Simulated assay, not measured.
Amino acid sequence: MKTRSLISSTLLLGAGALFAASTHATILTFDLSPAVPNYGDIPGAYGDNVNAASDSVGSYLMGNGYTPNITTEYRTWQISTNTVVYNNLDFWDFNYGDLVNVAFGVSSANHFAEITLVPEPGWAIRLNSFDLAGYSRIDHPNSQVRIMDAANETVLIDYSPVTVLGAGGITGTHSTFTPNLTYGNAISIRFGYNDWNIGIDNINFDQVTVVPEPETYAMLLAGLGLLGFMAYRKSQNA
């Protein structure tokens, strides 16, 4: 027994860039290898540069493909000081609703959990969906769930307050969030504010190619043309 004491659709375009159709997606299921005990640390490398169904730290489900240009970061924050106190989240295998193998915050009161998705240069992220559920198969009302710009700590989507489901049926249930958010910088999912009895699973995200807007192409072509003209003038004066 564990004793340690909605839906939106958004597209955000970066200045001077468009996002091409995605062909890569990964689903983080927290099926770890080697196995981690309850309260064990989620490996920091889980979800980094995924290009196969499994790697040295665990296995994944494939959405539209894999995400070799995205890395993941796990943190537990202290609310009162707004500082990171643990550079990891913990693992639990059952009883978070009907979810199996979840990540949750290392500590409970005055803390929250965070998972950050970081794209390499030239790539953006599309966060399709993720699941949250309450331990031990009970609903958790008035929960806070936010999607943040990881660099500026600005809120992109705020689901708060929301009831995170856990009760229902024989095996419990869960809440699914479908932000459908495309963003050109690192984004964070924050959950479990003052409540480590909320776990996350099945984080479905794409990597998306960033291409310049037509105006940016024009500026690039103009710049290349100017460089060519300067090279031509130099050759004529040589």
Rank of each mutant, 00 (worst) to 15 (best):
F30L: 04
V102Y: 06
I7F: 12
G172S: 08
G192H: 05
A186H: 00
L224W: 15
L181V: 02
N204W: 10
L32P: 00
V210N: 01
A133K: 04
L221P: 01
I70E: 06
L89W: 09
V211L: 10
S9P: 01
N194M: 08
F177M: 04
G168P: 04
K2W: 07
A186N: 00
A151Y: 05
R126F: 09
G16Y: 09
G16E: 09
V36C: 04
N49K: 15
Y74D: 04
L181K: 02
E73D: 04
M1E: 13
I200C: 14
N95D: 14
L99E: 06
S59H: 10
D158F: 04
F104E: 13
D206R: 02
P43D: 04
K234Q: 13
F229G: 07
A103Q: 08
N194P: 07
G192L: 01
L117K: 03
G63M: 04
N38S: 01
Y86N: 15
F30D: 01
G122T: 10
R190E: 08
V162H: 07
N204E: 11
G166H: 01
I198P: 02
T76C: 05
P121G: 10
N180P: 00
M148T: 05
T10K: 13
G97A: 06
V84C: 07
I189H: 01
F177E: 03
D90P: 01
M230I: 14
V162K: 11
V164N: 07
D41A: 13
L224C: 11
F130Y: 14
F94A: 15
S143C: 14
A21I: 13
N87I: 06
T176Y: 02
Y183W: 01
D139M: 01
L220A: 09
L11W: 10
L61G: 12
L18W: 14
D131T: 13
D55E: 06
L32Y: 06
N237I: 05
N69Q: 09
T83M: 10
G97C: 14
A150L: 00
P161W: 10
T72N: 14
N128Q: 15
T83Y: 02
P214R: 09
G168F: 08
N128I: 07
I138P: 02
T71G: 06
T176K: 07
A167E: 02
P119N: 08
L117E: 03
E114R: 12
L28C: 08
F94H: 14
G169I: 05
I42S: 00
